[in-house]
Design a protein around this nucleic acid. Structure first.
Lengths: 262, 262
DNA sequence: CCCGCGGAAGTGGTCTGACCTCACAGGCGG
DNA sequence: CCGCCTGTGAGGTCAGACCACTTCCGCGGG
C-alpha cells in the first residue's frame, strides 16, 4: 500500500478534475442541489478538454455525487443518498452474493435501526410511521401499492434512527432486493398479517421499547425471507421488454415547489 | 425523418454500453480478472464511438466494477471488493456524516460480524486470526505496523463471518475512518492493551462464544471511539445552529458559485 | 385578454480522428 | 549474459463539429 500522493497535481488529468470538483464540494463551494457551470465553460476554466471534464463528471455521477440532466445541467446530488445501487448489483454478480446473505445483512441493519428509532425517534417520526401503517392496512388488497408503503415504512424507521449512514447502507441492500420483493409480494397470501407485524413494530418503537422492536423486526424479516425463498424464482428472466415501469420510490427530486407532505 | 439513428433500446447510448458490459459480466461471459477487448475494437463491435464507450468504461470503473491500467488494458475487477471508497468520502462531505455516526455504524456491523464469525468460523479462519493477534503483540511499538494488523484482524473476522456483503459494508465504513484512525493510533498510549482486547475477542470467537465476542467487540470499538474523540484534532466547525438538527431539509436554490482558482 | 404553438438559446450527448503517454516485450549491441 | 532501446499496442487527451433535449419567451390566433 502506498499513500496515493495524487491529491493535488496528480498525473491523470481526469483525476485532477475529479479532485477539483471533490474539493469544491468538501470545501462547501458547492452544496447539494447546486448546479455546476456548463461543461464547455468549466472545461475552459480548468484548462482541460471538454471530453476529459466529461469523464470526470461521468465518474462522479456514477458514484452518485453528481446528477446529470440532459438539456438542463449538472447538479450536486442532494436529497436521499440513493446511490451506488447499480454498483451493488454488479458486485452481486461479480462476487456471487447470495440471497440469504442479503437478507442476513438487511436483518442486522434493520434490527439495529429499529432499536435506534425506538431510542431516538421524534414524535414527528412516529406520526409518519403511524400513517404508513394505516396506508398498509388500506392497501392490503393491492400488492404493488402495499409494497410502496412497506418500503416507506422501513425507510422512515431508518430516518428516525438518526443515523444516515446506517440508513444509507440499508437502502443499498434493500434496493438490491427490491425487484425480487416485488414478485414475492405478488404472491403474498396475507398482506393483512404483514401489516399487523408492521403495526406491532410501530407500537414497540413508539413505546420506546427497543428490545421488542428489535425482536419483531427480526421476526418480520425472517418471515419475509421465508416467503421469498419459497418462491420458484425464475432464473434467467431476460427482462426483455414487459412493463419496464422502473418505479423508484422517492427518487424524484423536484425543486421546492412540489411535494405534498401527503 | 430520414433514417433513424438506429437507437433501438435504452435511451442514452452510454447507458446501453454499460448495460452491455454489465450483461456480459452477469452472464458470466466475463469473469473477474478478465481483460476487455481494446477500446477501439470494442467500440467498433458495439457500433459506438470510442468516446462513448470510454464514458461507459469510466463509469463502471468509478463504481469499482472495472479496473483500468494505462498502457495495459481494462480488466474486470477481481480480488477484494475495494470499491466506492471515494464515493463514501464524498457522501460524508455532502451529507455531513458525523464521526459518531460512523462509529455507531461500524459498531453495529462489527458486533454482528463477530457473532457470525464465532458461529460459522472455520479452523483456517481461527488460525489466521491467531496469527494476526501475535503480530499485533509483536508490533505494539510500531503504531503504523500495528494498525495494519489491526485492520487485517477485523477484516479476517469479516471474512470468517461468511457474509461478504456485511464484510463489504464494514470495509466501506472503515475505509472512511482509516485516515483518522492512523492519527489516533499514533498517540495511542498502550497498544499492548489494545492487543489484549483483540486477543480476548479472538478467543471468544474461537470458543464459539458469540455473545462474548459481541460484547468484547462493542467494548473495543467503544474505547477506540473514545480515544479518537479525545484527539485534539478537528477544526470543530462551529457551524451555526448547535441545536441537534443536522438535517437540512430546506431547499437551496440554484446558486452557482465556484470559479476557477486559476 | 388568454392560450398555445414555434423557434431561439443553452446544456448535455455523441462522433470523428488525430496525437500523446505509458507498459511491455523483444532485439541489438556491449 | 546483461541492459539499453525501440516497436507495438493499450489507454489518455485533445479539438471542433454536430445532435438531442429542455426551457422559455414572444408572436399570433381564439
Amino acid at each position: 500500500m502506498s499513500a496515493e500522493p495524487a491529491s493535488e497535481s496528480g498525473h491523470p488529468l481526469v483525476e485532477q478534475a475529479i479532485e477539483y470538483i471533490r474539493n469544491a464540494i468538501e470545501k462547501h463551494d458547492l452544496h447539494p442541489g447546486d448546479r455546476l457551470p456548463a461543461e464547455r465553460e468549466l472545461a475552459q476554466q480548468l484548462k482541460i478538454s471538454r471530453a476529459t471534464l466529461r469523464s470526470a463528471i461521468g465518474s462522479l455521477a456514477a458514484m452518485g455525487v453528481l446528477r446529470i440532466r440532459h438539456g438542463v445541467g449538472t447538479f450536486v446530488a442532494d436529497g436521499p443518498p440513493e446511490i451506488a445501487q447499480g454498483s451493488f448489483d454488479l458486485l452481486r454478480a461479480l462476487h456471487g452474493f447470495q440471497s440469504w446473505q442479503m437478507f442476513e445483512a438487511r436483518t442486522i441493519l434493520e434490527r439495529s435501526l429499529a432499536a435506534l428509532a425506538a431510542e431516538r425517534g421524534q414524535e414527528s417520526d412516529f406520526a409518519a410511521l403511524s400513517e404508513e401503517v394505516a396506508e398498509m392496512y388500506a392497501t392490503c388488497n393491492d400488492p404493488n401499492e402495499y409494497l410502496i408503503h412497506d418500503v416507506l415504512f422501513h425507510r422512515l424507521i431508518a430516518r428516525a434512527s438518526g443515523n444516515p449512514i446506517l440508513a444509507w447502507l440499508m437502502e443499498t441492500v434493500v434496493t438490491a432486493l427490491y425487484e425480487a420483493r416485488r414478485k414475492t409480494v405478488e404472491h403474498a397470501a396475507d398482506l393483512k398479517e404483514s401489516a399487523e407485524i408492521h403495526r406491532a413494530i410501530y407500537r414497540a418503537i413508539r413505546g420506546r421499547n427497543g428490545r421488542r422492536a428489535t425482536e419483531l423486526m427480526e421476526k418480520h424479516l425472517k418471515s419475509a425471507e421465508t416467503a421469498q425463498a419459497s418462491e420458484p424464482r425464475g432464473p434467467a428472466h431476460g427482462d426483455a421488454s414487459a412493463a419496464g415501469d422502473e418505479n423508484r420510490l422517492g427518487a424524484r427530486r423536484g425543486r421546492e415547489g412540489m411535494r405534498a407532505a401527503r
